[in-house]
Computed example of a mutant assay.
Amino acid sequence: MAALNRPVRLAIVDDDPLVRAGLRILVGGSPDIEVVAEAGDGEQAITLAGAHWPDVILMDIRMPGVDGLVATRRIRARPGAPQVIVLTTFDADEYVLEALRGGASGFLLKDTPPRDILTAVRTVASGAASLSPTVIRRLIDHVADPSAGTRRAQARTRLSTLTERESEVAVRVGQGRSNAEIATDLTMSLPTVKGHVSRLLQKLDLNNRVQIALLVHDAELL
């Protein structure tokens, strides 16, 4: 997604009306972001994503009925899907990794400073991820995963389909390198790197760079 020449269209999904109201007030002071829809659960979120076409959804993870994990996966599976930032109370929430694997572009703690929330919304609206590989590593290290061995084997199998050059690009995405930095590292042009990243997403059936980084971390290639 390129930089927008209009306000970012934002949807807020949380089962707590006070949280939604607080976020709406926060965004109200920013002329480049507008709230176009709100929802109180995941089922409503799925509906509003198709009805209002937001650019970004702030999605609570833990909600009754259809939770934020299911809603994120279903929304992100659609063509032209909005970006999703999941909201959580705990920075080592075991559900955060699942949400990121489901296509979320990042996560925010509910006590994140207002300026940082707005920055994250702008960042993912531009097509970038609002999550560093350091945070991904910390999440993986802090969240016990009984299926880690299986994930490692599955990740390595998926990555084995890549060419040597694609693998080199994937590892550097996992390291948090920008396209420009990857181009310098591997002596490639910037358009060539962008082409490799696009092919990685298509070949691995992934939604964004965060998922590439997670796959590389799961395969223990860093």
Rank of each mutant, 00 (worst) to 15 (best):
A99I: 02
L100M: 06
R101Y: 09
G102V: 08
S105Y: 13
F107L: 01
K110C: 06
K110G: 08
K110I: 04
T112Y: 03
T112N: 04
P114T: 06
D116I: 02
I117D: 03
T119M: 12
T119E: 15
T123R: 05
V124Y: 03
A125H: 02
G127R: 06
G127P: 01
A128P: 03
A129V: 15
S130R: 06
L131G: 07
V135N: 05
V135S: 07
I136H: 02
R138M: 12
L139S: 00
D141F: 08
D141R: 15
D145W: 03
P146N: 13
S147Y: 13
A148D: 08
G149H: 11
R152P: 07
R152N: 12
A153K: 14
Q154I: 10
A155W: 08
A155Q: 07
T157Y: 11
T157V: 10
L159Q: 03
T161M: 12
E164V: 13
R165I: 11
R165L: 15
A170N: 05
V171H: 08
R172F: 05
V173S: 03
G174N: 09
Q175V: 01
Q175T: 01
Q175K: 11
R177Y: 11
A180Q: 11
T184R: 15
L186S: 01
L186A: 02
L186E: 01
L186R: 00
T187C: 08
M188W: 09
M188G: 01
L190F: 12
L190H: 14
L190N: 10
P191T: 06
T192G: 14
T192W: 09
K194D: 13
K194V: 07
G195S: 12
G195R: 13
H196P: 04
L200C: 07
L200P: 11
L201M: 09
Q202C: 05
Q202M: 10
L204T: 00
N208C: 03
Q211R: 05
I212W: 02
L215N: 09
L215D: 13
L215E: 11
V216K: 04
V216R: 02
H217R: 13
E220I: 04
